[in-house]
Design a protein around this nucleic acid. Structure first.
Lengths: 111, 111
DNA sequence: CTATATACTTTGTTATACTATGTATTTTGT
DNA sequence: ACAAAATACATAGTATAACAAAGTATATAG
């Protein structure tokens, strides 16, 4: 087995899918960055580095798919909460269609 | 909707999934490059540029996941046929496990 | 009082899809 | 017969995104 190839491949698979996952998570709730990393790690096998997530969130904000607001905490460091915009919701629905298609195509190919 | 974002996203999603698709296609049969592009276009919604496939196949060969052989044609241009190696088969089985996991994680998140 | 956890940020590196272009042969259309 | 399209492979240059690593700052556990 080619170990480094697989490691590298996993990193490549994340390109795009991470964006897709984050947007879908934000569909139902507002989350702050650190929480997103934790939530996804707990509920899936996907590990997201901080140096991956924060630039990603900034991209999504630049593209106006998400909005953010700082929320002061009674104790501790302030948190930046993210929420989908209208454009984000619509864009995500297009992405969901593409993903469903891709997933089925791959399913057909694998068997 | 952010059109260019979605276009860009689709391209990013292909990073990694293309490799995965190609290896899975080669699991059952030998194919030559141009044929791979056509087969995948016909059976799925995925378009692969030639400038994407040929470098990809060379990477897979360098990593020793596939082997290739030139086959002369009675008429027409010779074709380079690709087949999985032993290492390719084993590597692919690991990739299939990761993909199954990812797919299910995403499925959970989407709903 | 030190180490760990929380929370966000930035810089530099690396891998890979894509556009564009090039080569060469064969088939199709008119 | 000739031009255009299809077949078949290859490469150079560009853009993008994940990641490692390092940094800032506060809070908590041992």
């Amino acid at each position: 087995m080619n170990e480094t190839f697989v490691t590298n491949w996993k990193s490549q698979v994340k390109k795009g899918t991470l964006t897709f996952i984050i947007l879908n998570v934000l569909k139902n709730n507002e989350y702050y960055g650190y929480e997103l990393i934790e939530q996804i790690r707990k509920h899936t096998e996907i590990e997201i580095a901080e140096g991956t997530l924060y630039p990603l969130m900034n991209r999504l904000k630049t593209e106006e798919l998400v909005d953010s607001k700082w929320v002061e905490q009674e104790t501790g460091i302030p948190r930046k909460y993210y929420a989908l915009t209208e454009a984000g919701i619509e864009t995500l629905s297009h992405m969901n269609i593409y993903w469903k298609n891709l997933e089925e195509s791959i399913k057909k190919i694998i068997k």
